[in-house]
Design a protein around this nucleic acid. Structure first.
Lengths: 252, 252
DNA sequence: GATCATAGTCGTCTGCCTGACGATAAACAC
DNA sequence: GTGTTTATCGTCAGGCAGACGACTATGATC
């Protein structure tokens, strides 16, 4: 580490997290309230500095665990337990994105099943799940009529990019199961697609598609009526990670 | 900029470039020979430090211009002139990826038409277009029987990720035209797909597909026989950026 | 307990797209 | 002219998606 530090400008490197889940038929993201300037009191994406001896993915996994208690699971293993999916999203490095200093943020995208209330260092009032729609309507009014300030820094852009990544990725991969509990029904999976895409899907065609794609879903043998109506078969995520042909997002 | 520098570990931030082109029916990448340790004499991807007042995309465009003379064009404008396509690829930040110090590299992917010989600060012997296949067969032997050392740092991984991005992106976008000169024939575009994917495509079905996708190709009215055989119609890239339905990469 | 509402599951039909491949056209080399 | 090369048009069969009808099995309501 003996190197001339004047040979390059020093940067701070952070990881920011877009943590998405589906709650009450809506796509939601984890937001934390900033306790200090800049943007004090505003909502922001969770994140923090990368430590000196830490890989970027490790830093993101550590932040995710600190904020939600979620463990990340091995990407080589199919989505099964309550672990979350975590992947790198993009890196944001505008010289003025943080007024204090030059910060480069490596944003990550996490997809998680519906969780108990979030915790932000033990202080629940400073962390919440908010619908993506609400977080992105900058300067508008939230679901309960409360005025909503735009997200801090460039986090609206990051969140928007993360949502778009999730929307496109569930088309051609089995990632939508990362939003589901370990066992789920076809209808629950369909409601995930409907929440993420914001559209209604035909239950019959959806059922044909997902049960007809080899390796996507594995029946567990059980059934459930937790959604009401006729009992539905329970499934686990199968080994397939890529859907070919993909699920098609309806036009417009 | 007055902030306690001990509050976070300092990083060096670089941009590395995966510059791809198609030459003689092969997918090629730009490589530069390292003039100093570590990995002195080995081939590497072009890149350099991000300056203190520079955005990441600006830094990548500057490096690309320095290495190839290529200008980048506005992503909002369809691919038309000799400008290259440039997009962020991913960020690599393993603590040990550079033995000198903690370096986080924001890799970018550039796609360019076939170019005159590269220049690396005026020294042509230290920059070359090499086939991707050759660069990635670590420790093997190149096309002319010369022993090939693996790329420096984690650049083999970066190149591999960039190639995979290009391969998948030409499926559902019109990006393959970024490999072509401003005017090109359907056959030339097909040879781009064949080189990038490493497969043979049926000329008749390919012709039907690309000419039948609205907004993909715009006929210029001219024809050319530069490929031999019957004269072919010349096209420009149309305004469409997304192909729906996509070009399908043949199985296996 | 009959009826209703809800959700799940199986089928059918039609149109579009793709892959395989035949046929023709227009240049150049000899 | 003959052969070679490349471009372009056409045909046909199979697969898949969208639209939608029909039936099933639960709980809720009267």
């Amino acid at each position: 580490m003996s190197y001339d530090p004047s040979a390059f400008p020093p940067f701070a490197v952070t990881v920011d997290l877009v943590v998405l889940t589906v709650r009450r038929h809506a796509l939601c993201a984890l937001a934390v309230r900033r306790g200090e300037p800049p943007f004090q009191g505003r909502w922001a994406l969770p994140g923090g500095f990368v430590r000196a001896d830490e890989d970027l993915a490790q830093a993101a996994a550590r932040e995710l665990a600190e904020e939600t208690g979620l463990r990340v699971h091995d990407p080589a293993v199919p989505v099964q337990d309550n672990g979350a999916h975590l992947e790198q999203l993009a890196t944001y490095g505008d010289p003025k994105r943080d007024p204090r200093m030059r910060v480069v943020s490596v944003a990550h995208l996490a997809l998680a099943p519906d969780l108990p209330a979030p915790r932000a260092g033990g202080d629940a009032s400073n962390a919440r799940w908010a619908s993506v729609e609400e977080l992105l309507q900058q300067g508008g009014y939230g679901r309960d009529g409360e005025a909503v300030a735009p997200l801090a820094f460039d986090h609206a852009q990051i969140l928007s990019d993360g949502v778009e990544r999730a929307r496109s990725k569930i088309e051609y991969s089995s990632l939508a199961t990362a939003f589901c509990p370990p066992e789920f029904t076809v209808g629950e999976l369909r409601r995930v697609y409907e929440a993420v895409w914001g559209v209604a899907l035909d239950p019959r065609n959806f059922h044909r598609k997902v049960t007809g794609t080899p390796g996507f879903l594995v029946p567990t043998g059980g059934t459930t009526t937790r959604q009401g109506g006729r009992p539905a078969q329970l499934f686990r995520a199968g080994g397939a990670t890529l859907l070919n042909p993909p699920m098609l997002r309806p036009e417009v």
